[in-house]
């Protein structure tokens, strides 16, 4: 317990320093606002075009699609703020043989490698996603109750955990594959597929985005929770997937570190 408290204190200190470093570059805030606006406009335009021809997409109505888009942007912001900077640094250090310096620290190494950096201005995406979710809730006209909100919060947390674990597992392959730039396209493509509810996809794609690379389920189920569509079965699947991906990421990290021989002098 003492070790965990110590590790969390290190994480908080790291994030504080990272945020202080980033806020020096205020122009980056403006750039991030433009980027988020572009993402929002293209996402909303795509939905509006579809719903100008139909009122329902396999049972999903426009405000419900907005909820999926909001969760997609929000979780994408969480990824870009807290996860991606650390994954990029981890990859860079394996290439350069500098990971040894992280591995000898007296804290949990996976936690340390996953939390060293923060890309502060990407929080704009988190705020944008929250606004879109608010917009969707307004369009759902009183369909969202207190219980829905609580289930949504739990589902969103599980979704965040799944995204981190999937990216951690993917990045850990760097111990063997070294260059992941091309494979990046695949995982980013699968994440973008989560911009639409996976329930509208054929069975083979739903299965892929639930069981193989569970990025789709991490976004759709929180949106279902918000729109009152969630079933106990899909929540159970989400929780199980979250637990399995965390355990898999941990086991894979341990295996990778055991295989890592270092390259520094």
């Amino acid at each position: 317990m003492k070790g965990l408290t110590h590790s969390l204190a290190v994480v908080v200190a790291r994030w504080r320093v990272g945020a202080q470093y980033e806020v020096q570059y205020r122009l980056n805030f403006v750039l991030q606002v433009v980027e988020s606006a572009v993402r929002l406009v293209t996402g909303v335009v795509a939905i509006r075009i579809v719903y100008s021809f139909t009122t329902s997409l396999r049972g999903w109505e426009e405000p419900e699609l907005l909820a999926v888009l909001g969760v997609h942007i929000l979780l994408g912001g969480v990824l870009a703020t807290f996860v991606m900077p650390n994954m990029h640094r981890f990859r860079y250090e394996v290439h350069q043989g500098e990971l040894d310096y992280a591995l000898v620290r007296p804290v949990d190494t996976q936690l340390f490698v996953s939390t060293r950096q923060i890309s502060f201005w990407n929080l704009v995406d988190v705020a944008t996603g929250a606004v879109v979710i608010g917009w969707a809730v307004a369009g759902l006209a009183g369909r969202v109750g207190f219980v829905d909100a609580v289930v949504f919060a739990v589902a969103l947390a599980c979704g965040g955990v799944i995204l981190y674990s999937v990216w951690m597992t993917f990045t850990t392959t760097v111990f063997w594959l070294v260059d992941l730039r091309d494979a990046d396209q695949i995982i980013n493509g699968l994440y973008d597929a989560g911009r639409w509810p996976i329930r509208i996809y054929p069975f083979w794609l739903q299965g892929t985005l639930t069981a193989v690379v569970p990025l789709g389920v991490a976004i759709t189920v929180p949106a279902e929770a918000l729109t009152g569509r969630v079933t106990p079965g899909s929540m159970a699947v989400l929780v199980v997937v979250a637990a399995v991906t965390v355990a898999a990421a941990r086991a894979f990290w341990n295996l990778g570190v055991r295989n890592y021989s270092g390259a520094s002098a």
């Binding site: 139909t54 091309d182 396209q185 493509g189 639409w196 996809y201």
Partner: peptide, 21 residues
């Protein structure tokens, strides 16, 4: 080949959506 597989998801998603519509 891996890169091409990566950008396959985008048209596949559009395709599924518009076939439904």
């Amino acid at each position: 080949f891996i890169s091409i597989l990566g950008f396959l998801m985008e048209p596949v998603v559009y395709l599924i959506v518009w076939r439904l519509v």
